[in-house]
């Protein structure tokens, strides 16, 4: 049974002359791990601030578990857990004081919902007498997540929990989220890291206040209509520059050790290979590949720019 947990309908928000959210609509089902993927300035935080009743939309409606963000804000505040982008626990309270403070504010106790946070909290428990301000980045993150969960929220909202975090801690954080999933808890998480999209049930791709796409990561990849090629040669710098000026190049981007390239209609990789040899490139390697979410995001960005032009 699919029940709607979060509903956003034609939501717009302006800051002076900046359109931060441009008629955004999507729904999140109960129990979903839903990702809001986009760079800084895409509108992720504005949308989360609307859902957490800290900001009102200029237009449109939004509801969390059936409660309207405008009229029913008191109910929403009781049933959501929110981890803002900036560390916002009490720095001069200890780890355990922070946790029991948050439990008390929501009229519950640490003991009552300990099961929910046990896996996460156990990792910082050895430091429970330490002030939150003295914790390392990874530990702060675990404490913030524990505090956001301690009142057993129905919807968990995490604003860029992995920004500025190293690859190891990032992986650990996602493992925690995936373990949390599965109960009735709905999780909304925002991130600028495109690779994290693959770990979500569904994602919304957001750029400059506009929704580029809402779908499962695999459907987003399926909707990529170009044949994508991974390409490398001995001198990658020259390869990139040459391809930027090649008449049959449709798009070319660096991707780790490769270039990802799409060709204009009717052009074959064999022709490309010949041309690259003529240009004096050595150890040319061309391979057909499936796009990742990041390829799709860039493709959708360029379509959006063409629509505007």
């Amino acid at each position: 049974m699919n029940l709607t947990s979060v509903e956003i309908r034609e939501v717009s928000k302006n800051y002076a002359d900046v359109l931060a959210l441009n008629s955004i609509s999507f729904q999140v089902e109960r129990g979903e791990l839903f990702g809001l993927i986009g760079p800084d300035g895409a509108g992720k935080t504005s949308l989360f601030r609307i859902l957490t009743t800290l900001l009102l939309p200029d237009e449109g409606r939004a509801a969390v578990e059936g409660f309207d963000v405008d009229g029913d804000f008191r109910e929403i505040r009781k049933i959501i857990g929110y981890m803002p982008g900036r560390f916002s626990l009490y720095q001069d309270l200890t780890v355990e004081e922070n946790l029991s403070f948050y439990a008390t504010v929501f009229g519950t106790t640490v003991e009552e919902n300990y099961d929910l946070i046990k896996d996460i909290y156990i990792q910082i428990e050895p430091f429970k007498k330490r002030r939150a301000g003295k914790l390392s980045g990874g530990m702060k993150q675990k404490l913030a997540l524990s505090c956001a969960l301690i009142h057993k929220p129905r919807v968990l909202i995490l604003d860029e929990p992995t920004t500025g975090v190293d690859a190891v801690s990032r992986k650990e954080f996602w493992e925690m989220l995936i373990r949390l999933k599965g109960s009735d808890l709905t999780i909304l998480v925002s991130t600028p890291y495109m690779d994290e999209a693959e770990l979500c049930d569904r994602v919304a791709l957001l750029q400059d206040g506009k929704l580029l796409s809402v779908n499962t990561p695999s459907k987003i990849r399926d909707n990529y209509q170009q044949q994508l090629w991974a390409l490398r040669a001995e001198n990658m710098y020259r390869l990139k520059n040459d391809l930027a000026g090649y008449e049959n190049t449709r798009s070319v981007f660096l991707f780790g050790r490769d270039l990802h390239i799409t060709l204009k209609g009717g052009n074959t990789p064999e022709e490309l290979h010949v041309w690259l040899e003529e240009m004096g490139h050595q150890q040319i390697h061309i391979e057909a590949i499936q796009p990742g979410v990041e390829d799709c995001f860039m493709e959708l960005m360029s379509k959006e720019e063409q629509n505007q032009a």
Partner: peptide, 14 residues
């Protein structure tokens, strides 16, 4: 390049 969109991130590397 933290938080920068994927296209701009690559232009930065250029």
């Amino acid at each position: 390049t933290g938080g920068v969109d994927p296209v701009t991130r690559r232009q930065f590397w250029d």
